[in-house]
């Protein structure tokens, strides 16, 4: 259940919720950490549940020594009311056989809090891609039917690729297709439940392998940022070089003019 700390906005009505799926390489969780720390989001509450293995640690996003003494738990909610954004971070795996209960709990919280849309950040085993999934960038998306109506055209303009369904019986019968997200944890279950309950839900995922998954997290957050514009795009390297050139030119000309 959601338990608020003191400084809570009255409701999450109309907010966008971003949450990770505990999945291969922990990419969704890393990406969520990146969003919380980049936007400097304050904590507004906890998801306190028996579905997650208990863990505790000091503040993972300290900016000064005092912050480091803040205790963090296994599932916390962060929020920026100005931009109507809430982020749920999950820091522990599920207790065995409790992931279904967790899905139900999260979906009922999403419904009762009045979130406008939910974005699930996830990942899937790169080595289990089929031929068509090997083509192009490793990033894919999925939209629930209700969100498809609203955001489908916008995502089309971004030229994003929807995750390809794979054959249920490869080599025997290629007409039976199914949604398959190996290594995605609760991603598929959450998405299918979200669809059937009419929740506006998007899944953004990256195909990856385990290792140093920080670059995957950056790629996933950039992908999300192309859609939601959480932060301004940084200046690209060629643009930066161009700026540097101009700066050097100015410095040189000013020095030369002084000499003269």
């Amino acid at each position: 259940m959601f338990i608020a700390t003191e400084s809570i906005p009255s409701s999450f009505r109309g907010f966008t919720l971003i949450m990770p799926a505990v999945s291969v390489g922990n990419v969704g969780q890393l990406a969520t950490d990146l969003i919380i720390s980049t936007l400097g989001m304050p904590r507004v509450g906890y998801i306190h549940t028996d579905c997650l293995i208990p863990m505790a640690g000091n503040d993972p996003y300290p900016t000064c020594a005092d912050d480091a003494a803040e205790l963090s738990t296994n599932a916390e909610v962060y929020c920026l009311p100005d931009v109507k954004l809430a982020v749920l971070q999950i820091r522990a795996p599920f207790v065995q056989r409790k992931s279904r209960k967790f899905r139900k709990l999260i979906l009922s919280w999403i419904k009762s809090s009045g979130f406008d849309r939910t974005v699930v950040l996830s990942s899937s085993h790169a080595y289990q891609r089929d031929d068509q999934q090997l083509l192009g960038a490793p990033l894919r998306y999925l939209l629930s039917p209700v969100l498809e109506q609203e955001a489908g055209t916008q995502l089309n303009t971004l030229e994003w690729k929807e995750i390809e369904q794979v054959s249920a019986f490869p080599g025997i019968n290629d007409s039976d297709k199914r949604l398959y997200i190996p290594g995605g944890g609760i991603t598929k279950g959450l998405y299918t439940d979200g669809c059937s309950e009419g929740i506006k839900m998007a899944v953004l995922l990256i195909f990856c392998s385990e290792g140093d998954n920080i670059p995957d997290a950056f790629a996933l957050v950039n992908y999300l940022n192309d859609w939601l514009h959480l932060v301004d795009k940084p200046v690209s390297v060629p643009q930066m070089l161009c700026l540097c050139d101009r700066l050097i030119y100015h410095v040189l000309t000013s020095i030369m003019s002084r000499d003269v």
């Binding site: 338990i3 906890y46 306190h48 293995i53 208990p54 863990m55 505790a56 640690g57 000091n58 503040d59 993972p60 300290p62 480091a68 003494a69 205790l71 738990t73 296994n74």
Partner: peptide
């Protein structure tokens, strides 16, 4: 204080998490 990136698990974590969420002063 316990330095990052160390975490605690098990019963100790369950107790301090409960205390944090339910606003009970606790130290581990």
């Amino acid at each position: 204080l316990l330095e990052q990136p160390n975490i605690v698990t098990g019963l100790a974590a369950a107790v301090v998490s409960h205390c944090q969420v339910h606003q009970i002063p606790a130290v581990l």
